[in-house]
Amino acid sequence: MLSLTSTEISTIIGSLWWPFCRIMGAFMIMPLIGNAYVPVMIRILFALCISGLIANLLPPVPAVDALSFSALYLAVEQLLIGFMLGFILYLLLHVMTILGTIMSMQMGMAMAIMNDPANGDANPILSQWFLLFGTLIFLALDGHLVAIGILVDSFRLWPIGSDLFSLPLMGFVHRVGWLFSASLMLAIPAVLAMLLVNITFGVLSRSAPSLNIFALGFPMTMLMGLLCVLLSLSGIPSRYSDLCLDALSAMYQFIGGTV
């Protein structure tokens, strides 16, 4: 007759529960999967399926009583680790959002706001368009599959029970600065072109005060901005591909991997 102790039962349950907590933490915020358009039940089932598939491949999990405070702390710790891994990719896609915001402000389309019912915020239409463009590039590069692979490898590189505060948390904070620098890098050509246009109309307003520069400059600035957007489409994919590689590498190195 098979008899199991409470510790053995907790270990068996933990081999599925702890991986589920980390994976679900990543799926809460990871692009595409963490979007509000994806039902929570689908995310839970997807996380359970992945946890069940990798349960037998994981290193031994710590024997912790499932009803103890240590089990609660371990569950929260795995949720935070998964959340931080998913947040790195969240910053990657929002590079395109900030890029669209910068270009909208330069070309005078910042007032063209569209509400996003999924995320509950309001962004310029150009930001929404660039976000969709960046998402399609990320999918074309199979970035979602690589991200799930890194998430699975995290159990080998950073086993369950490892100290959360031993992770390079300051490097994680620096990724926020990387978000703004990457957005500005993509937006610099358009910003410089729009700056030249504004300087030109400034010179015209000083040399010919009788001209209605505001009536002439606004449509011309918008047309020049749309032209810059059109010209940027040929160069953004290659640059954004490098940013995707950089974000995935940072995600892998965050949990102790070497590239």
Rank of each mutant, 00 (worst) to 15 (best):
T101Q: 11
L131R: 10
L233F: 10
I160R: 02
F254R: 09
L245M: 05
S249K: 11
G34A: 08
G100A: 04
I13A: 10
L167E: 01
R22N: 01
Q253F: 01
A247I: 02
S205I: 08
V259A: 14
L2F: 08
I88Q: 04
G100S: 07
L186F: 04
A193V: 09
M107H: 05
L91E: 01
V76G: 10
M103Y: 06
I50N: 01
F87V: 03
V152H: 03
G202Y: 05
M111N: 10
R22S: 00
I255W: 04
Q128G: 15
D246C: 04
Y73E: 14
L169G: 03
W158M: 12
M194L: 06
A247S: 03
G149T: 12
L132C: 07
F87T: 09
F27L: 07
C49G: 13
D246E: 11
S207T: 02
D65M: 02
L227V: 14
L85T: 03
C244Y: 03
A71W: 06
I81Y: 00
M41G: 14
I44Q: 09
G108C: 07
L243M: 12
V38M: 14
C49M: 13
N119T: 15
A190H: 03
L57M: 14
L231K: 11
A247V: 00
M194N: 00
I42K: 15
S15M: 12
P124V: 13
Y90C: 03
S154W: 02
I9E: 01
T7H: 06
V146N: 02
F46T: 13
D153S: 13
L179A: 01
M111G: 08
F133L: 07
L233P: 00
I188E: 08
V229F: 13
M222A: 15
F172C: 04
A55T: 14
A250W: 00
V191G: 02
V76W: 08
I50P: 00
F87S: 06
M109D: 04
D116I: 05
H174S: 15
G171S: 15
P60H: 04
M222T: 15
F218Y: 15
P39S: 15
Y73C: 09
I236E: 00
L186I: 08
Q253P: 02
L126H: 12
L192I: 15
L192A: 09
A55K: 12
I150K: 03
S68F: 06
L136P: 02
L243T: 03
L80A: 07
V259C: 09
T97H: 05
F130I: 06
I54G: 02
L245F: 06
